[in-house]
């Protein structure tokens, strides 16, 4: 038995190590090209180790967006606030839906599910949010439209509640005289750390990486998140490639960031979330510990 366990460990380690290398290799190219002089890339091609170091890309970023710090601030606020709000709404809805005795349970589940398949499209959504709620050029535009809660996360959480929270737990809480809300906050949530950490992680990533809301609802640069700024730099190229502005394109093209800058942009965009990741990791691991206590 010991032996089979050792083999499992070895096999798992080997495969996961290979996968990790596979995942990380492109990032080495990414980071190394962000430190390589553009002319060198165009001449010698991409490589894993920069032949000539250059910080030009990062210089460009620093000079070109004095607002990068503020943008980071906005991103952090939106991510934190949005994720917490989102977790609250999602878990409340998901928990209620997970209760086998909830009247109209299937109808409600269907209402949630339906939103995953059908949507009105960008234009109607924009009209709802700008004409009725006047959300344009406010910080809410980065938090609410499309991001705050999605049916996918609700259903995922509901499935977790159904499969991992034993019914007797809820039953005994009720017998002890705890109200629904107290049961939920002091018994259910602590038991659900793995799923909360998972959805929290997904939401954090969603908020951190979102540029679309800023693209559509913001014209005021002071509200731009970091991804809005980065995406703006990246999208210029595509704009010029797909829009024929004749001889005038050339003038605009001169303001386009180079390959190295594009890579540096990617590095700046990814880095913070990597730093935040171990935080969630801790809770995922904690989830195991709780599972052990339960068993």
């Amino acid at each position: 038995m010991y032996k089979s366990d050792r083999i499992t460990q070895w096999v798992s380690h080997t495969i996961l190590l290979l996968l990790s290398i596979g995942s990380i290799i492109p990032f080495i190219i990414l980071v190394s090209s962000s430190f390589t002089d553009e002319a060198t890339i165009l001449k010698d091609g991409y490589s894993f180790f920069p032949k000539e170091f250059s910080f030009a890309a990062y210089d460009y970023l620093l000079n070109n967006s004095g607002s990068i710090l503020r943008a980071y601030g906005i991103t952090v606020f939106v991510t934190l606030f949005g994720t917490i709000l989102s977790l609250t709404i999602t878990s409340l809805l998901a928990y209620a839906l997970s209760r086998r005795d909830l009247p109209y349970r299937n109808t409600f589940a269907f209402i949630v599910f339906f939103t995953l398949l059908f949507n009105g499209g960008m234009v109607p959504t924009y009209l709802v949010y700008t004409e009725i709620f006047d959300i344009k050029n406010t910080i809410w535009a980065l938090i609410i439209p499309g991001l705050l809660m999605n049916g996918f996360n609700v259903l995922l959480m509901r499935t977790f509640f159904i499969t991992s929270i034993p019914e007797p737990v809820i039953e005994s809480a009720r017998i002890d005289g705890a109200g629904e809300f107290r049961t939920f906050f002091s018994i259910i949530l602590p038991l659900s750390l793995p799923i909360l950490a998972t959805i929290g992680l997904l939401q954090t990533i969603t908020y951190w990486n979102d540029w679309f809301n800023g693209l559509i609802y913001l014209t005021e640069p002071s509200l731009f998140s970091i991804q809005n700024i980065l995406n703006r730099m990246l999208a210029d190229i595509q704009f010029l490639a797909s829009n024929n502005l004749g001889g005038n394109a050339a003038e605009a093209a001169s303001q386009i960031p180079s390959t190295g800058v594009r890579m540096a942009i990617a590095v700046i965009g990814v880095l913070p979330i990597l730093i935040a990741y171990p935080f969630f990791q801790k809770y995922l691991v904690k989830g195991i510990a709780i599972g052990a206590v339960k068993g």
């Binding site: 234009v123 924009y126 009209l127 703006r232 999208a235 210029d236 704009f239 010029l240 829009n243 502005l245």
Partner: peptide
């Protein structure tokens, strides 16, 4: 409006009832 947002925002602004008077328009 930056080029990244131009296509979307200019179209959306012309769709709703936002305050907008003059706008640059292009053939493409």
């Amino acid at each position: 409006i930056g080029p990244a947002a131009w296509q979307q925002q200019s179209n959306l602004m012309l769709t709703g009832n936002e305050k907008l008077d003059l706008i640059v328009t292009t053939a493409s």
